[in-house]
Amino acid sequence: MLNRDGVASKDQVLSRFPSNEVLVKAKAITECYEEIPCNPCATSCPFDAIHIGEDINTKPVVDFDLCTGCGICVYSCPGLAIVTAQIVKDKARFKLPYEFRPLPIVGEVWDGVNRNGEVICKALIEKVTYTARVDRTALVQVSVPLEFIHEFITVRRVL
């Protein structure tokens, strides 16, 4: 339970995902379940696809028609609570924020981790963006088997 251990429930997670039909294109998944005073996801979106409004404590709402899955909100979120998800054939492709060393390298296979911190699958590193624009929060694109689309959340280096 989110309040007791920091793990969002399955229902909470699903409430942030659009349908699989929509996910043929990358979309932002905002895992921000609390009213906290924060709005960089909304102000950083160049497509005006994330809405928070005047009261910055409002939870973000993504307009999946406008969201292009560009990933700017992923590295702009101070809570590192946003990923983008996309279905590509039998794979789920994610862009996620990563703030550890060493950075993954394209082509490497890392462990795929769920919201409990458990390793659930392998994750292929497809792209690593680390420019001045991302301000030290690397944007890492990975793909995992499609069945883990609602469980996968981050990557961990295989030790």
């Binding site: 989110l2 920091g6 969002a8 609390e34 906290i36 979120c77 809570g79 590192l80 609570a81 911190g117």
Partner: peptide, 18 residues
Amino acid sequence: IGGYKVHASKLKRLGVDI
């Protein structure tokens, strides 16, 4: 948990129990 849950979730997915 006392703080923002986004911070808690960040730790939990690193394998740190709260």
